Computed example of a mutant assay.
Amino acid sequence: MTNVKSLNKWANAHTYLSVDLVRIAVGVFLFSKGVTFITNIQYLVELLAPFDKSNGGMFGMFMVHYIASAHFLGGILIVFGLLTRWAIIAQLPILIGAVIINFLGEMHSQNLIISLSLVAICIFFLIYGSGKHSADYFFKMDE
């Protein structure tokens, strides 16, 4: 807990508006992907098909619901900077899975670059936190 507090104090002392804008952009992107997956659930089922051959559909349906809701709710939390680290922890397995899917299935270089970039940005915000211009800072959750 003391490590998180010291990271937050360092991040708040070295915060920049551009970093907060990147956090907001990542949150909006994840929210829009969640909306896309909710409205076009068959696309997500097809993406997860290589992983769901042995369970008869149960694993795939669990993952579809987890991915869509985590992107949808996590994107909102990241945009507002509320519980940012927890939202990013929920996003990282999905994003790492997106990188793996590019190697197991059909390779799309644009999707791979986006996935790798999001993994790197999410790891940065996992360490950096939500910043000074966030709901966490406003509600004094960082101290």
Score class of each variant (00 low, 15 high):
S117R: 03
T36R: 06
I113A: 10
Y66M: 09
L118R: 10
F80M: 14
T15C: 14
E106C: 00
L116K: 01
T15L: 08
N40H: 03
T39S: 08
F124S: 02
P93D: 00
F51C: 05
Y43L: 15
V22G: 05
K33A: 11
T39W: 02
V64E: 01
K33P: 08
T84A: 03
I113V: 14
M61G: 07
Q42L: 13
T15S: 09
L118G: 08
G81N: 05
R23S: 01
S69K: 10
F51G: 08
E46R: 01
A13E: 12
N12Y: 12
M63I: 08
F103E: 05
L95Q: 04
A90M: 06
L21K: 00
W10H: 00
I100G: 04
I78V: 04
M1S: 15
N102Q: 10
L126W: 04
F124Y: 07
N12C: 04
L112E: 11
I127W: 07
L83F: 15
F29E: 04
F29H: 15
A120Y: 09
K132P: 09
M1R: 13
N55E: 14
S32A: 11
W86Q: 15
A49K: 03
F51W: 09
S54K: 05
I24W: 02
S109P: 10
L126Y: 09
S134E: 01
I88K: 08
S109A: 11
I67D: 07
I41P: 09
E46Y: 00
T36K: 07
K132M: 15
Q42P: 03
K5I: 11
A70W: 07
H133G: 06
S109D: 13
I88D: 03
I94C: 08
G57V: 05
L47T: 12
N12G: 15
G74H: 06
Q110D: 09
L21G: 00
T39G: 10
P50M: 04
F80E: 00
I121S: 07
G27A: 01
I38M: 05
V64N: 00
C122T: 02
I76Q: 05
P93T: 07
I41M: 11
L73C: 13
G74I: 09
F125A: 05
N3P: 12
I78T: 10
Q91M: 05
I101F: 03
T36V: 10
A98H: 08
